[in-house]
């Protein structure tokens, strides 16, 4: 059974449809990438899953239960943590305060303490800089802080919206190295990416979104699959072999 299922999910902003009835299933421990061009509905899908915007139709099921319409704080507490596009760092707060925000609601204070220690091991740059304001960190450090903070919520599913956005190639590699470790530890990941190549290198499954719908889905392992995903990404109609985007 899937740990997280998006069932016929539709998201609207007023009369504008951002997501038009998509179906995505993520099994426990899987890493799924949603790729697609700007305006495809990727971020809206993520925000709806995190409860930050309310889907108009369909359902979101987590561990067998519907979480549609739940408050974002309730969804976080149930085990879905989000690293949004732009990182969502509180720049006026220190690193420590940013991290604490993911733990205030947790009752297991001893476990929080050991999780904090583990975070410092996993993200060593934070160790000596807990009192540094997050706004002073580099983009890559901010992204790591956003991931660390989400991990302190002890999620079962981690949502990451364009974790490589605005980062230098070395930093992108660093962030994906961290994500690979998390994947190795069995974390379930749903990642929005612009780069199909990066998604292919990392994810178990790729969903290509365009104009609010999932146009193609596959593992990207064999060449036929890659061609199909690329065609969907770039908007090629395979039957006539030309771009159909915007038609």
């Amino acid at each position: 059974m899937a740990l997280l299922s998006l069932v016929d999910l539709a998201v609207y902003y007023g009369r504008l449809a951002a997501v038009r009835g998509i179906n995505i299933e993520i099994g426990e421990g899987q890493a799924v990438s949603i790729v697609g061009p700007n305006g495809a509905g990727k971020s809206s899908t993520m925000l709806a899953t995190a409860g930050s915007i309310v889907a108009r139709m369909g359902d979101i099921r987590f561990d067998g239960r519907s979480i549609l319409g739940r408050e974002p704080e309730a969804i976080c507490r149930m085990g879905i943590a989000m690293v949004p596009e732009g990182r969502g760092i509180f720049s006026a707060l220190t690193i420590r305060e940013n991290l604490l925000l993911g733990t205030f609601w947790r009752k297991d204070k001893r476990a929080v303490k050991s999780d904090f220690e583990e975070i410092v091991v996993r993200f060593p740059f934070m160790a000596e800089r807990m009192q540094t304001h997050a706004g002073k960190l580099s983009g890559g450090e901010q992204q790591q802080l956003a991931i660390a903070r989400a991990l302190l919520c002890r999620p079962r599913v981690l949502l990451l919206d364009e974790p490589s956005l605005g980062l230098a190639p070395l930093m992108v590699a660093k962030v994906y190295e961290i994500l690979a470790k998390l994947k190795g530890d069995g974390m379930t990941l749903l990642i929005v990416e612009q780069s199909l190549t990066r998604a292919r290198a990392f994810a178990d499954r790729i969903c290509v979104m365009r104009d609010g719908v999932v146009q193609a889905e596959g593992s990207g392992r064999d060449q036929a699959d890659v061609t199909r995903l690329e065609d969907a990404y770039f908007g090629f109609d395979e039957t006539i072999g030309k771009a159909t985007a915007g038609n």
Binding site: L101, G102, F104
Partner: peptide, 13 residues
Amino acid sequence: QDFRMARMLGVKA
């Protein structure tokens, strides 16, 4: 600073 993000971290509105 960012109420939406705070809520996604479990902060009760």
